[in-house]
Simulated scan of single mutants.
Amino acid sequence: MKKNIESIFKTHLAPKEVYQGGKNIPPSNKKIYKLSSNENPLGASPKAMEALKAAVAKIDLYPDQTDIRLREALVQDFDEKLSADQFLCGNSGSEVIDIILRAFINEDDEVIFSNPCFLPYSVFSRWYGAKQVDVPLLAPNYDLDVEGILNAINEKTKVIFLTSPNNPTGTYIPKSVMDDFMTRVPSTIVVVFDEVYRHFADAEDYVTALPYVLEGHNVIGLNSFSKTYGLAGQRIGYGYTTATIANYVRLIQKPFLLPLTSIEAAIGALHDSEFIAETVKTVKEGRSYIAQVFDELGITYWPSQANFFIIDPPFPEMEFTDKMMEEGIMVRPVSQFGAPGKVRITIGNQEANEAFSKALHKVMLP
């Protein structure tokens, strides 16, 4: 008897909203500035590029069977405060999220996140049949709702996602808030602390996951090489946590997980302190410049600790996006991230920032 193949499909994978990444620059006769994907304003680390070029000659060979060389380089990057067995690597920060969820989530378990936030938290958890529990950030400043999250926890809660600085809002979680939260969250839950924009944060009370990992909490600091290091195209990321958690999660990692080129580029990037410093300087100067443009034009925006801003545009989000594109500026509407009506603008180099300012003035003051 012929049966419909859909009868064996997993019901929790029924068509629903999926994550759609930012668009690439379209073909055009004029200069287009891509301020929509939070990419590095200076390009890629020169030392990463040198390492990448050298690795190309070996792409006929299998890469390292494990990620140990990269993990050892990360130990040095963290000033030997962590050991190699405390790191987890993957093909982008997004894949590290996926690996974590595969390791801890069974069908009908619950995952907590706080919109507006990075959409893969909910999309990826759905792949494994988890219930998504959204405890929204608090208006008007996008503050973390600590009490709301704690009240949402039950015996099925397995993973909580926190993000600081947060994508797409650019806001952060103060240390006092994190301290309070980490002392109250049950020890049966894994807290994934997404800190991929940490290099750009300069608030005095900003904190990463590191002190909580060192204290032995069940927290995973999530990082990426796409932003600060300029390796978005190489798709490489990592997390750090307790050795107990990391060694457990590694049980489900495939051999030859990372491409040779990604391993070499990442190690090279970690050694490029001059490029990292220049990237951070460029972002912070650009952040100040663009904030002044918003102030001048009366644009509602939220102070950012990342390499982007979220704004409340003067027109409906798609109309604003289209108008800016007509002026050669790509920006990102973020309704899909849980911020309806808002638009995210990446900080570029000075040329791109000035082009953005000119376009915004033209759109606002035709």
Rank of each mutant, 00 (worst) to 15 (best):
R126N: 09
D85K: 14
D60M: 03
E95M: 11
D77Q: 15
I68L: 15
K156D: 05
D64W: 09
L138C: 06
V135K: 04
A103M: 03
E155H: 10
A139K: 11
S92Q: 00
F124I: 14
Q76S: 14
I97C: 00
D143L: 09
E107Y: 01
Q76R: 15
D67R: 02
Q132H: 06
S125E: 01
I149R: 12
G148N: 02
G148Y: 07
L70G: 02
L82C: 01
G93R: 03
F87E: 08
I112N: 11
I149K: 12
L74R: 09
L137A: 02
E110H: 12
K156S: 06
N154H: 04
R102C: 06
S94P: 04
A103I: 04
A73D: 07
F104N: 11
F124Y: 14
S125C: 07
G93Q: 04
I153P: 08
G148T: 01
E155V: 11
S92D: 01
P116W: 14
L61S: 07
L150Y: 08
F87A: 04
I112Q: 10
T157P: 00
R126Q: 11
K131M: 03
K158L: 08
E95Y: 12
Q76F: 11
Y62T: 05
D98C: 04
G129T: 00
K131W: 00
G129I: 04
A57K: 14
Y121F: 15
A139V: 05
L150E: 06
G129M: 04
E72F: 06
F113G: 10
A103H: 12
V133R: 09
D108P: 04
T157Q: 03
L70D: 05
A84W: 07
L138K: 13
V75P: 09
N141R: 13
I105S: 08
K131S: 02
S92A: 10
E95P: 03
D60V: 05
A103N: 08
V96Y: 07
D79P: 00
R102P: 01
N154D: 12
D108Y: 11
T157R: 07
A139R: 10
I105R: 10
V159F: 08
E110P: 01
S83A: 11
A152Y: 07
D109G: 10
N141E: 14
F113Y: 15
E107V: 09
A103R: 05
L88V: 12
F118N: 03
P116C: 15
P140N: 09
E110G: 01
A130N: 08
N91H: 09
P136L: 13
I153N: 08
D145L: 05
N106Q: 13
F87H: 07
I68Y: 10
P136Q: 13
R126C: 02
N106R: 14
P63T: 01
V159Q: 07
